[in-house]
Computed example of a mutant assay.
Amino acid sequence: MLETICGAIFPVVLSMMLGYLGARLGMFNREHATAINRMVIKFALPMDLFVGISRIDRNQILNSGGFASIIIGWMVGSFFLTYLFSRFVFKRSISLATLQALAVGNPSVPFVGSAVLGFLFGGKSALAVSVASLAINVILIPVVFFLLAGDNKETMGDSENWISHLISAFRQPVVVAPMAAFFWVLSGIPIPKLIDTSFIMLGKTTGGAAMFAAGILLCLMKPILNKMVITSVAIRNVIVPAVAWGLAIAAHLPSFYLGETVLTFAMPSASVIVILSSQINKGEREAASTVFFSTIVAIVTMGVLIALTA
């Protein structure tokens, strides 16, 4: 079992460490990391999200019931609870509170979920990965871009009112692509295979490229372990899956779905926070450190949760 967890997590750690090594040897600098992240968020990530969501079976979405409700509801709920806590208790700016909320409410299910859940639960794990991806990319990402647009006019647009901010958010490829795929799936019209095969090549570079860029930023800015990073990792890796466990019990989910729900929320923070922090030039060091430590801690916490829910 430990081999399964390490097999899923190690590629993420290795990609980050290679980026760190490249920067350490003077092969990459901050401008290179920014360029890589720009490519990811404008091209690779939208393509990857489109392909992933377009492969969801419509009946899975329509018949997922309480299982999907818990995943979507708690993913969105953990995001907004963390945002309010960070904004009004820690007194952080809108941008930093949004990034911290995304670190908690956005587990790396698209990158790590298929490997871990697929091994443990077989083909049925596709539903958890798909529903989580929908919640992240159709609900959370538009909200994140809306919040960041209002606080970063120089990098996210110079709009002056909330309607303009909303329009600016929905102009982002990372928002438009998954929503287009979602409604396409609901329509029941098959996605042309040519689109699927054409998008998948660049889309598959998303995880590795983002973590490589995160490694570059970690080397240049040095990892930090402050109260914000510790808080984010503790909530993401321990508290969120524990609450998910309680919700699954309260909903009387069968043991199979209970374990799948808990492990879906036990994934480490996704690297998209590093991409966004680099784009707005705020919180890059904290974002990269959060992803790094969350990934390392997940090797232990996911192993424990697998044993407890077996």
Rank of each mutant, 00 (worst) to 15 (best):
M17P: 04
R24T: 04
P110T: 01
V143M: 14
Q100M: 15
A97V: 02
K42W: 11
P142V: 14
I230V: 14
A248H: 06
K282L: 06
H252Y: 13
R24P: 04
E154L: 10
R55A: 13
P192W: 12
L253C: 05
S15D: 14
V185D: 00
G118Y: 06
G118W: 07
W74M: 09
I273T: 08
F199R: 11
A169I: 01
M201D: 04
M27Q: 15
A149F: 00
I239S: 07
K204H: 07
K42N: 13
E260Y: 05
T197C: 00
D151V: 05
I53K: 00
S54W: 01
G283M: 03
F170R: 01
S64I: 09
V291E: 05
N152V: 03
S159Q: 14
A307I: 14
T205P: 04
A23K: 09
A210S: 11
I41M: 14
L247C: 10
P190S: 02
V112Q: 04
M1F: 10
L62A: 11
A209V: 01
L21H: 06
A209Q: 06
V116H: 09
Y83D: 09
E260K: 03
L81Y: 02
G77R: 03
S187K: 03
F80Q: 04
N106A: 09
S15C: 15
L99N: 06
R171T: 10
N59Y: 13
T4M: 13
A248M: 02
L18E: 10
I306C: 11
G259V: 03
I61S: 04
T82F: 05
M302H: 02
M47H: 10
T34M: 08
S294L: 03
N59C: 07
G259I: 08
S168N: 13
I72G: 05
K124Q: 13
A132V: 01
L147P: 04
C219H: 15
L217F: 12
V144Y: 04
G66Y: 06
L263K: 01
